[in-house]
Design a binder for these strands. Sequence first.
DNA 1: CTAAATTTGCGTTTTGATTACAAAAAATCT
DNA 2: AGATTTTTTGTAATCAAAACGCAAATTTAG
Lengths: 138, 138
Amino acid sequence: MDRNALGILRQYDLRHTDTRENILNGFLQKTTALSHSDIEVYLNDGFDRVTIYRTLKTFLDKGIIHKILDDNGGVKYALCKDQCASGHHHHDHVHFKCSECNETFCLEKFLIPEIILPEGYQRKDINVLVQGTCPKCN
Amino acid sequence: MDRNALGILRQYDLRHTDTRENILNGFLQKTTALSHSDIEVYLNDGFDRVTIYRTLKTFLDKGIIHKILDDNGGVKYALCKDQCASGHHHHDHVHFKCSECNETFCLEKFLIPEIILPEGYQRKDINVLVQGTCPKCN
DNA sequence: CTAAATTTGCGTTTTGATTACAAAAAATCT
DNA sequence: AGATTTTTTGTAATCAAAACGCAAATTTAG
């Protein structure tokens, strides 16, 4: 399975551009979720702010990355690990944000248990954010 | 149990002001979670934007309301139902956002099941947002 | 290499949030 | 009630985040 920027772009039928390659490399290198501004920093102001917005939106639409909620009312992003066949995502895993180092982790192996909803509520998507301290900060 | 604005203010040792009373009444009337701008609309521009920020922060600090994450990177607020002793909250219930009407509901009765974390991760707080369609929009 | 389609950068605008400070309102105390 | 103290509010200014339109640049296909 392709785990390099070019491969991913090809896989999802996206044109190969500098911005996209660089941003993808960012995601591939970091083990944590990235915010818009994390990416800006990572790219070292090499690309326009607006372009980053658009690139993230494109990746999101294609299902290359997924959104992770942040407690302060923000969003971070992380790669969808490749077991989601395209169009059929199941990132029903737990997200963990460390309140010491402020990093957010995708706990890919730790799935969200079944959540019971009242009669009439149709579940489509789900997002779990656990906050606490990560192994490094304990 | 006090379920009126004045009672709540008294209970939490807060001065009785127009803004606070009105905002509390908003929360008491609506069954859904409110964003800052929902409140602005509800108050019909009767109070300053900044005052609303401050009021929400005050309520948050006192434990009168709690934060609910929004999928688009925003925050909504809702009353803490059972008296979480101040400083000792237990709103470990599920939040549901309907993607049709965009309303967010506190499913107070539906608690978050135990979530297993990898070795070394210390859980402190948790936030669950389920998205889908609510009974009215089905 | 050329043409068509997509992507990018920039300027502008809108919106959201925070701060400082003076005015206003609430509670307290004769 | 009236005066004093403390808290709260409104205004203006500041700052950051996000969205939009358009022209220039880049990618892909022929």
